[in-house]
Amino acid sequence: MDVVDEVLEKSAREAEKYKPITVEKHLELEYDLGTLMAVDKNEFDMDTLRKDKNDYLLNLTRDNTQLLLNKIWDLPTEQIEESIVVKLPPQKTVLPRMKPVPKPKPFTKWQQFAKEKGIQKKKKSKLSWDEQLQKWVPLYGFKRSNAEKQKDWLLEVPQNADPMEDQFAKKIEAKSERIAKNELQRLRNIAKARKIKVPRVGVINPDASSAKDLQAAVTVAKSSTASLGKYQSKLPNEKEARGVAAITPGATRKRKLPPVSANVEKTESLAIIDTILNKKPKLNIEKAVARHINNEQLE
């Protein structure tokens, strides 16, 4: 028993040597350990505050810091490179952000297309072996361009081309066209992403524009006469471009009125069904013959 008493007495004496770590508070503090913050809602002791402001604030803050650190020391610890760290919980205080939440980047037209078709980007190697020059040529950069120059010291004139045409100038021109087209597409993608209406530029380069663009250009050009294209001749099977009514002078939309009564609607739909049901299959003689021969051979 003596031993127990002795140990207890010793620990009590030991504890007396140190100042306490406990603090009495009327109202409990509010903590946000994620921000290392404590909020003390207790009223100030106004007399002491007036008498000895700085000492009072020092003691008050000491008590509150002690309480905050008591909480922090209770958190789970970890050892990282010879120092003990505590894992802080997430922040409770909600603070405004610096900038808005990032939005997902809209796809470019190509990315959209590639996604629909399931086209995946292939990784190209940075260097490739050039048989002609017998050396490794990078994919891009000044060394690539130097290599191109070395290779293309002579250009072949295509068979049906004008022999006096400068093939080198033509090549440079084609390259600048490609660059311009790419830039235009980039700007178009930006405009599309930001939902900005851009004025039409018409057909820029017949080599680079699509059949659809050309058709639109023809339709618009035909209607650009004094008589709004009324006396313009038409090619057989020529179709007008769609979606250009807004920029075609004199164009009116052909729109059918909705059916007047239920009876009329019924006859109209039945007529459609009749046309579908009475459709005779087109006879593809070649295919039919081939099938016939195939069947005969099988038998």
Partner: peptide, 12 residues
Amino acid sequence: KPCLIFNGPQWE
């Protein structure tokens, strides 16, 4: 990173 201590009921 400092500890932030807010004293007084006036803050709320």
